[in-house]
């Protein structure tokens, strides 16, 4: 699904030049669950952003589903993104002004799904994450774990091929964290490819493979399965 070769990304401010990705090469196969680990500033988030087509690399190749996307413009990236990739963030990133239902519905609106179909699919996915009874609540009215379940529901409602999770349990207690991890595992078992950035060895153990990064490069890979 993902094949990255010698990817480079450099951030420049007036004073400093930070090399975030330094000729990084990696691959993620269809249906894999990969955890990316490493100390702060090692380039994990940059990698995730590029994988999520939110950011573009300076150099190198990025094949997504056998298509070279490294030099896609914003519109093309957005198009590819909304049909293929779901995101789960550490801070949930739900919209406070929208209800649970409306938050989950959002990606479907942007991909132009009709209202009746939207309703069906949102209810389906809310059922799946067991938050259906809270469908008309606002995010602030939910616990952290519930909010993250909503976020996961939102990430998968469009049936993406790839889910990118950025420390999905970072803001949760261990109980709620485990629930979310199990949810992700379940999704993976149903065929969704997952790339997860995490600091937690515990969480990483849910994955098939751990990629460890340092200074913008992969240092080791542990295959767990």
């Amino acid at each position: 699904m993902i094949k990255i070769t010698e990817l480079e990304k450099v951030y420049r401010t007036e004073e400093v030049e930070t090399i975030a990705l330094n000729k990084l090469t990696m691959e993620v196969k269809d249906g894999e669950f990969v955890a990316v680990m490493g100390p702060s500033g090692c380039g994990k988030s940059t990698l995730l952003n590029i994988l999520g087509l939110l950011d573009d690399p300076d150099n190198g190749s990025f094949m997504f589903n056998n298509i070279e996307v490294a030099h896609f413009n914003e519109r093309k990236r957005a198009d590819l993104r909304k049909h293929n990739i779901g995101f789960v963030f550490q801070s949930f990133n739900l919209i406070d002004e929208l209800t649970v239902f409306e938050n989950v519905e959002l990606p479907l609106i942007y991909t132009g799904v009709k209202a009746a179909e939207r309703k069906k699919r949102v209810e389906e996915v809310l059922d799946k994450v067991q938050i259906m009874h809270r469908r008309n609540h606002y995010p602030q009215q939910l616990s952290g774990g519930q909010q993250q379940r909503v976020a996961v529901a939102r990430a998968v409602v469009n049936h993406p091929k790839l889910i990118l999770a950025d420390e999905p349990t970072g803001n949760l207690d261990s109980h709620n964290g485990n629930e979310v991890m199990e949810l992700l595992t379940e999704l993976n078992e149903q065929g969704t490819t997952i790339v997860m950035v995490t600091h937690s060895e515990h969480d990483a153990r849910y994955s098939h493979r751990i990629i460890r990064m340092l200074d913008g490069q992969t240092v080791t890979e542990n295959v767990l399965v």
């Binding site: 957005a78 909304k82 990133n93 919209i95 990606p107 942007y110 939102r154």
Partner: peptide, 15 residues
């Protein structure tokens, strides 16, 4: 932040 989220979820500039 909301704008950011919406964009990640696939909203276009016009939207």
């Amino acid at each position: 932040r909301e704008i950011g989220i919406r964009k990640v979820l696939g909203s276009s500039v016009q939207q």
